[in-house]
Design a protein around this nucleic acid. Structure first.
Length: 622
RNA sequence: GCGCGUUUAGCUCAGCUGGAUAGAGCGUUGGCCUCCGGAGCCAAAGGCCACAGGUUCGAAUCCUGUAACGCGCACCA
């Protein structure tokens, strides 16, 4: 490990350990024994500049248990840290906070050292860990719309971030390529397919066919219901709420027959199904290419079909699933754990029943997901599994994870859920109503950004302007989703999604382009051996933020929340802009110029690297 | 009805898992181009952290209620 490759994080651990040791010694001497004193006191960023760079507030928490005054403990901590090479000043403040001030020299040396570190301080914390990440997962025969964008973009960002920390990542696109909709699609395709329209845009035509099916189904259902109510005796109340619906309309019966044929391996239906998948995948790939998103596998739901009978058998054999109303069902207890199959279902179960096989013998999402989990754990040897979907699937995954626990799964399986995208009033409508297709959103983003590029930099040629528009537009869309906590409910508007000011991708890209312009004009490569001078708080603040990069990236990997990295990069860019406003670089005297070039260059490298983890490109000019 | 989630400035959001005087962006108002790219910088105004209790040295953060909104709740995925 080279010096300076992970300065800030190591320093905090070191300080925390020394503080804890000093405190333990003091407590032992004074008889104020405390159970479970941590080996490392938490050292956190100070809330305000006057409180120094970092602070330790643990003395306040420990004081009560130790029955000693907080300030006395703080004094012990101060004694333990006095003389540390990185600390310029240690003070006790308020009721017992310990404020730590780093020396400018320590910061400067560490920043200078980072010039020689191609990883910018990132540590291989994920080494020897295999993570399977499941994201995007669009449904076959449906165009990707703005509801898919968060899973795709958040998932891709996590994918890249984990890889950067040396995790062995397997990205799996679990596309919806199986299910009852294929019976409907086959029927609708045979009845109404418009060959020219299909040839031009298969997925849009498939969506039209699906909608046409629903319309026809509804029409027939109306007719059936009318005759049913006319002949009903009306004296027999329905015993089951779910069964009050009348007999199925003929077209739905037809769809079910086609589905059964497909499942039985009927050659014609199988060929159609394959065609739908291939054409859909082609359309998805176009979007992924524009977004720069990649997968290692596309193991759709159908991948697991052959395993489902065995999965359900196994669940029964192990006393997890049982017969109930003709279906294979798993029940839960008051704690939300699986209820043994020999026990009667209970009233106040924490979770509703989990159906792994329908009463008609068909399998569903639940059994598919059990099989998927088994493959990811067994075949892929995952040591962590991340599934990125919207919030509506929380209950399903709680049920699934309870089943996994019952089956003895101990590796962490996490549902990385995000809030739904909602439409605001007045947004543009597309062909199919109020769904905005992802492709249209990206087109509009690029169009607006291209116009903006032309306004802000008239010197750009047509080709470069379009290139800038593409990178800025796509970046803005991605950043808009990534910069909010993923659990936030988003109300979509073009103006917000494509904003170019404030905490946005274009701001960061602009900061990068400006920096590159300075470095170009310097006519030299910033020197890794230059001495860094931190002359004032502005330069000092910039240095601190540069060094904090690994902390932000590791937080993203741990919590699966990319907005932490967005916030970090925005603060870095802001710190640079402040620095840039009144600290001449090229016109400074030689030693200062060399030092400032290092700060400038490092800011550029961290911005580029951090944005790349988010899947956002940068430009040399814009 | 039950479960999960959300509620912080006019609007959009942070708040590092209990720390000191709650922070940004947009918008508003006022400054900054003889100076490396003004998609920028500096500053001001703007807050009962939904509401009511509780826990403790200390609460936007934890616990209990209440309200509003979002989502889900037996054979869709």
């Amino acid at each position: 490990m080279t010096v300076g490759s992970r300065p800030m994080l190591d320093l905090l651990s070191d300080l925390g350990r020394r503080a804890a040791a000093a405190l333990a010694t003091h407590l032992a001497a004074t008889g104020g024994a405390v159970d479970g004193l941590p080996a490392e006191l938490p050292v956190v960023r100070a809330g305000k500049p006057e409180f120094g760079d970092f602070q330790i507030s643990a003395c306040l928490q420990i004081a009560k248990q130790a029955k000693r005054p907080p300030r006395e403990l703080a004094e012990a901590v101060v004694r333990g840290l006095t003389g540390h090479e990185a600390l310029a000043k240690i003070e006790i403040a308020g009721p017992g906070f310990v404020n730590l001030h780093l020396t400018d020299g320590w910061l400067a040396n560490r920043v200078a050292a980072r010039m020689s570190d191609p990883r910018l301080g990132l540590r291989p914390v994920g080494r020897d860990q295999r993570v399977v990440i499941d994201y995007s997962a669009p449904n076959v025969a449906k165009p990707m719309h703005i509801g898919h964008i968060r899973s795709t973009i958040v998932g891709a960002a996590l994918h890249r971030t984990l890889k950067a920390l040396a995790y062995d990542v397997i990205a799996d696109n679990h596309i919806g390529d199986w299910g009852t909709q294929f019976g409907k699609l086959i029927v609708a395709y045979r009845r109404w397919n418009d060959q020219a329209a299909y040839a031009a845009d298969p997925v849009t035509e498939l969506l039209r066919l699906y909608v046409a099916f629903s319309v026809e189904e509804k029409r027939e259902r109306g007719e059936v219901a009318a005759t049913a109510t006319a002949t009903a005796t009306a004296t027999e109340p329905a015993t089951d709420e779910e069964e009050v619906q009348g007999p199925a309309p003929p077209i739905l019966e037809e769809a079910r027959r086609e589905l059964v044929k497909l499942q039985a391996g009927d050659a014609e239906n199988h060929a159609l199904w394959q065609k739908f998948i291939a054409d859909s995948r082609h359309a998805f790939q176009e979007i992924y290419d524009r977004l720069g998103v990649t997968f290692d596998y596309w193991l759709g739901e159908s991948t697991y079909n052959g395993l489902l009978p065995t999965v359900v058998q196994e669940l029964r054999r192990r006393g997890i699933a049982r017969d109930s109303r003709g279906a294979q069902v798993i029940f839960f207890d008051e704690q939300g754990e699986v209820l043994a199959a020999e026990r009667a279902p209970i009233e106040n179960a924490k979770l509703p029943p989990f159906i792994v096989q329908k009463s008609d013998g068909g399998f569903n999402y639940a059994s598919t997901d059990v099989a998927t989990l088994a493959i990811r754990l067994g075949l892929f040897g995952a040591s962590r599994i991340l599934i990125v979907t919207d919030e509506r699937q929380q209950l399903h995954f709680r049920q699934l994870f309870a089943v996994a626990r019952r089956m003895g799964v101990t590796v962490p399986v996490e549902h990385i859920w995000f809030g739904l995208m909602r439409m605001a009033e007045g947004t543009i409508k597309t062909r199919e109503g109020n769904v905005i297709h992802l492709a249209d959103l990206l087109d509009e983003a690029e169009r607006r950004a291209t116009v903006a590029a032309g306004e802000h930099n008239p010197e750009l040629g047509d080709e470069e302007r379009r290139d800038v528009g593409r990178v800025v537009g796509i970046g803005a869309v991605k950043y808009n989703d990534l910069s909010k906590d993923r659990q936030t409910l988003v109300t979509f508007t073009f103006d917000k999604a494509l904003s170019l000011q404030g905490n946005t991708a274009p701001y960061l890209q602009y900061a990068y382009a400006r920096i590159r312009s300075i470095v170009r004009k310097s006519g030299e490569a910033p020197s890794p051996s230059a001495t860094v001078i931190l002359g004032d708080t502005v330069e000092r603040d910039l240095a601190r933020r540069i060094l904090a990069y690994p902390e932000a990236v590791e937080t993203v990997a741990r919590t699966c929340r990319p907005h932490v990295l967005c916030d970090y990069l925005y603060e870095l860019a802001t710190a640079f802009s402040t620095f840039y406003a009144d600290h001449p670089v090229l016109k400074a005297e030689p030693t200062l110029r060399a030092s400032r070039l290092v700060l400038t260059e490092l800011t550029a490298r961290v911005l580029r690297d951090g944005l790349s983890l988010l899947g956002i490109d940068v430009l040399e000019r814009m």
